[in-house]
Design a protein around this nucleic acid. Sequence first.
DNA 1: AAGATCATGGGTGAC
DNA 2: CCATGATCTT
Length: 848
Amino acid sequence: MTDPTKRQPLDLSSYQPAAGGIAARARAAAGPAYLSGLNPEQREAVETLDGPVLVLAGAGTGKTRVLTTRIAHILSTGRARPAEILSVTFTNKAAREMKLRLGQMLGQAVEGMPWLGTFHSIGGRILRYHAELVQLTSNFTVLDTDDQIRLLKQLLAADNIDDKRWPARMLAGLIDGWKNRGLTPSQVPAGEAAMFGNGRGGKLYAQYQERLKILNAADFGDLLLENIRLFREHPDVLRSYQNRFKFILVDEYQDTNVAQYLWLRLLSQTPSSSSLPGSTRQSISSQEDGSPGLAASRRPGDDVETSGNVVASTSAPPKNICCVGDDDQSIYGWRGAEVDNILRFDHDFPGAKVIRLERNYRSTGHILAAASHLIAHNEGRLGKTLRTEDVDGEMVTVTGAWDSEEEARAIGEEIEQLQRQGHALNEIAILVRASFQMREFEDRFVTLGLPYRVIGGPRFYERAEIRDALAYLRVINSPADDLAFERIVNVPKRGLGDATVQMLHDHARKRRIPLFDAARMVIDTDELKPKARGSLRGLIESFERWQVQRDAVAHTELAEIVLDESGYTEMWQKDRSADAAGRLENLKELVRSMEEFENLQGFLEHISLVMDREGGADEDAVSVMTLHSAKGLEFETVFLPGWEEGLFPHQRALDEQGRAGLEEERRLAHVGITRARKRAKLYFATNRRIHGTWNTTIPSRFLDELPAANVEITESKGGSGWGGMSGYGPSRFDNVESFGSSYSTPGWQRAQAQRGRSGGGSNGGRSGGFGESSSSYSSGSTRRAPFTIEGELVAKSTGTESAFSLKDRVFHQKFGYGHVTKIDGNKLTIVFDKAGEKKVVDSFVERA
DNA sequence: AAGATCATGGGTGAC
DNA sequence: CCATGATCTT
């Protein structure tokens, strides 16, 4: 990722506030310096401080810049002090970047922005202040997914539920889903609660919550849900936060789930000192627009409203909340994100000002046009028209490969070529749909000796040795943390096996006390064999000693003492396996990383919430990552392999979510293309191995949805090319039926036509073999290029006239002949002679 | 209590 | 094909 501001007219980062302070500086100039680099829309988004604002910021339009400048503006106009601005992001990375950029604008003033952070870290912080009100203590532990699953497994075992038939993972997923939707155990719809474990799902959720309280723990969902509960049950607490936060800013609003939405809604209401229960029942986000799914999911919200805490639009002006997002980049529906939150913003926050940022400062014309045309195929969107003043640049390329191996080889060669031309590898990324695709590239790059880095692999904190070390520290910090205790009770080996642990569990359960306390009691009895008893006593005494030391020595020193005295370090020193040295290194790194924290508590807080893998070396290397983890990044050159039906769009997205799933996949494709500044290179393979077996695949429908005018079909540079079976010899593919059928999609046909027209295709004659499919497509006849975008390379979405008019006689490659009965932007409703009425994007039909 | 073997299932993954 | 987890074995 490079500095996204660099193509903007004025580099804000060079702005240095005068010693007199930002306020003084702001008064000095009629238009403060930090505003002068903004375009009119950006400036409006920054300067519209009062009331709700939704900034629809397309890819590369300067979203982060608007957010940070807005904060600077609020501060410099004296509208609020740093501690009065609530600014939430989804990732720590985003929060860090905002802090960094703010620092560049404001100097040290950022230090005083205590409420800039992720939803979870802010939620967690608020929860710690009021822990006792939600049956926790302020040193509560934040459980990660692993702990969560282990806890659920225990509950399932206790209930004699077959873990095979009802996996703990599945229950964890359900509970997460409920929490994402803001549902406490009692609010889960009966039907859903019954879905798991023969009707026991709801009960298990309730049990799980009880256990969390006993463990003095909260999972990620709780950090928000318990916050909401806190606000609902203690209006005075809520009011204090409503009073505190004069301005609220939200990044990536399209990714918010219902719980986050509710949380924001609660905080964004203007506090009314006389919040009479039931006095204001008017709902803000309400009914009457038949959206059943949403209505159902919003039910908890209505609860909030009818309980009287919500101020209706008429009684008080809504808070100064500014949400920034892009509905076209909503790719986390599977994780509970509600695109509807952004689609309904002006409904939820009446009087909201909606500002669109449509000037793209990132990509060249062809790239932007391709991405825009693709995303225009989605129906559920607010519609933006991205523009660029950049040159057209290179066309987006689409390359077919015989199989995934050749795909990797071709991309490898292209990268080497770019490298020879002097392009930095850091400016090149490979973005895959699914992580299994990465291996092939790694293999290839290893043989080529091409430096690469995989982003988003196993994270630092997920490593066994880190989790073990943390478990020791967790027990010291919160002795009730049974999950941590259980993790390390026999690590390193102390002869405390299943039998001993089981015994401790029985003891603990009977007396309703933590395992640690149970252990302390048991060592004074003769219930254990002398050997195990002595071992356990040693451990307990160690912990008691460490607990005393916690307040006496620095936390980093404590960590070293613990790792040393527990025998944990020794365990790895003795280990002869290859990765033992690396693990010891990681432990050192862990201790090092503790230095920047005040104390143990602060460190543990951080570690549970900050999942970032520490930034790898700055060496020049190609980045390999999933499309999801690429969101928010940009590269000069982006390779997008695997554009095949079933993989992208992913079959499961289609199966499980239907059209909504397809649209989310399409947004993912849009995100992928818009990561590129200068070159976007798409690939598809005709054969791909999935779960060990080779499958013949069809090029992705998304390829068909690209505008021909901006796309160039190229031959694979991977040597023998598609037709060249020779390189592979008589192979395992001999049985594969003609792969010609793969090339009969409209996109392919079009590609051939395109190639013929432009004459640029290196070896057009060779394509003969591919086109001859059994399909009914009339090959040869030059097809009308699909909806192309002329001139200024502006994508047309909703609101644009189609090239067709009512009653036009048209031909569709799949549905045959028909006539247009309705036109909605570029979407046509057509009654086909044979296939009946269909809604079709106009690029799929031609005049008959 | 540790290692060996079978069985299962295999989008995306922040906090 | 592969990685992970549950079960079986020593």
